[in-house]
């Protein structure tokens, strides 16, 4: 993974200040969210179902706009960002979904190369890289397979490969190990750790409270729409850091 992009981006990956979020005219699902996501940092977000994890991630990968507060991504003000600007920023973000969101009519190779193709690159310029990446995630021999013929773990790895193929500066993953067996989950987490070591900023949402400690990441806990910056403990229990509660980390 190239570090060119990161070298020219000394600004924090994201800064959220007093951000709230809601869907339409519904109730506020996230209240007064504050954090600073440094470039190359690694965060694990935990919390019960419905607490607002997915909404927070959606705001990070620009699928949902905050309803109040201030938010910036790669130094750009999200509140003032136009649609095309959002699209351009999304190219710097890789997203891994729990449900993979692969296109069933495209092969694993075609799914992984989608971000590059949509950037207007021709196949000859990226084919080798994509095959190498698929090999790296253990799917070198499944490049021409269609998603419906792949196992859950294989699909997840294709989704991860698609998320990182364009060398994003921020990787956001929502329950990336939620539907794979523990062994595969460990393998995928090692993959994320490797990516972080290569310089990518990672935010991973999970139900596993021990994950942050396992991977040496900063722990975030979200409860009732409030974000808490935790100090992970060996038993995985979330200990709320009162100095970071509701404040920037």
């Amino acid at each position: 993974m190239s570090s060119n992009n990161r070298a020219q981006a000394p600004v924090p990956t994201a800064i959220f200040s007093h951000v709230s979020a809601r869907y339409g005219r519904g109730p506020t699902v996230l209240h007064d969210i504050n954090f600073r996501l440094e470039a190359g940092s690694y965060h694990v977000l935990t919390g019960p179902s419905g607490a607002g994890k997915s909404t927070l991630l959606k705001m990070l990968y620009l699928a949902h706009k905050p309803c109040s507060g201030g938010a910036s991504l790669f130094g750009q003000d999200l509140m003032r960002l136009r649609r095309n600007g959002r699209a351009d920023l999304r190219r710097r973000i890789g997203v891994v979904f729990q449900d993979y969101r692969l296109l069933d009519h495209l092969t694993a190779f075609e799914n992984v190369s989608l971000p590059l193709r949509l950037q207007g690159l021709v196949k000859s310029s990226y084919a080798e890289d994509v095959v190498e990446l698929l090999t790296w995630v253990g799917l070198g021999d499944r490049a021409n397979a269609y998603p419906p013929t792949l196992s859950g773990g294989e699909r997840q790895r294709v989704a991860i490969a698609r998320a990182i193929v364009a060398k994003p500066q921020l990787i956001v993953a929502d329950e990336p190990t939620g539907s794979v067996d523990p062994e595969m989950g460990q393998r995928l987490m090692r993959l994320f750790t490797e990516l972080n070591k290569l310089g990518a900023t990672l935010v991973i949402a999970t139900h596993d409270p021990t994950m942050a400690l396992q991977v040496g990441a900063q722990a975030w806990h979200i409860q009732d729409g409030q974000l808490h910056h935790n100090t992970p403990t060996p038993d995985g229990g979330p200990v709320i850091d009162p100095y970071h509660h509701g404040g920037a980390s």
Partner: peptide, 12 residues
């Protein structure tokens, strides 16, 4: 498909 295209950075 539209959502995936948007998420990987495709403009409208």
């Amino acid at each position: 498909i539209v959502d995936v295209m948007h998420l990987v950075g495709a403009r409208d």
